[in-house]
């Protein structure tokens, strides 16, 4: 039986409900919160600041350093063992590569921008939520960036091309599933992250990405609105 209708009643191109906020961590230089369905991510940005150890400093431009972490209680039942794992190290690395094309760190030689992302609750799509939250936090920190980076997964679940898979779809038992996390620079359409778990045909892959374009714009709008909201709230308090 092919997957004809999504189990939670969403349309194929529809994401789960998105909530985005900025300035959620007062101690950080910039911070962001991004929730999509039951997956939520907090991101804190510190810096640019001095980079230690000094051997890692780059005199040409500043560095971006990301740290992705799922909290022990955030998974689907099993406790996530705290500390770095192969998975979290990989995701930290791909986050860095997904965000670097938009941030301009030329003014900060030898310095570092630290991005810490914590996920208190996950229901698939956590690396995409992490990138989206980190991007809000970077913009909130006042860094120069060409655009925000919007990220969401696309996929093919038992023949149906869908956007923003949740855990149930990702672990669909009755047919093949391809899960493709993507990150995009919305103003240019450049893709800064593609990973894939599963198998798809070439044309399905292209169609799945095409179908997700409105979702990327929606996420980018939510991200930008989150930062504006922060300043609008401050203004509203004055009146």
């Amino acid at each position: 039986m092919a997957y004809k209708k999504r189990h939670d009643g969403r349309k194929p191109g529809e994401t789960r409900k998105i909530i985005a906020k900025a300035g959620v961590i007062p101690n950080a230089d910039g911070s962001g919160y991004f929730k999509i369905g039951d997956t939520e991510a907090y991101a804190a940005v510190y810096g640019p600041r001095e980079l230690h150890p000094r051997s890692q400093q780059d005199p040409k431009q500043g560095k971006l350093r990301c740290a992705y972490n799922m909290m022990p209680f955030s998974g689907q039942g099993d406790r996530v063992r705290p500390g770095p794992s192969r998975r979290s190290k990989e995701i930290s690395m791909v986050m860095e590569k997904a965000l670097l094309p938009v941030v301009d760190l030329e003014a900060f030689p030898n310095a570092v921008v630290d991005v810490f992302v914590e996920l208190p609750q996950t229901d698939a799509g956590s690396r995409c939520a992490a990138i989206s939250a980190a991007s809000i936090a970077l913009a909130d920190a006042g860094l120069r960036m060409r655009d925000v980076v919007a990220a969401v997964a696309v996929g093919v679940v038992d023949g149906m091309k869908v956007v923003d898979l949740d855990y149930e779809e990702e672990a669909w038992k009755e047919g093949d599933v391809a899960d493709i996390p993507l990150a995009m620079v919305p103003s240019t359409g450049e893709i800064s992250l593609v990973q894939m778990d599963g198998r798809v045909k070439k044309d399905e892959f292209v169609q799945a990405i095409e179908q997700a374009k409105p979702a990327f714009d929606a996420i980018a709008d939510a991200q930008r609105a989150a930062i504006k909201q922060r300043y609008a709230d401050a203004a509203a308090k004055v009146e």
């Binding site: 230089d29 910039g30 810096g47 640019p48 600041r49 301009d104 913009a139 909130d140 920190a141 006042g142 860094l143 120069r144 960036m145 060409r146 655009d147 930062i227 300043y231």
Partner: peptide, 22 residues
């Protein structure tokens, strides 16, 4: 825009005054 800031329109020139940053 490539920075979070307050937009200033000076005739035909658009610039921003940053609201955050080190």
């Amino acid at each position: 825009a490539n920075q979070t800031g307050l937009l200033i329109v000076e005739g035909k020139v658009l610039k921003t005054i940053p609201l955050a940053g080190v």
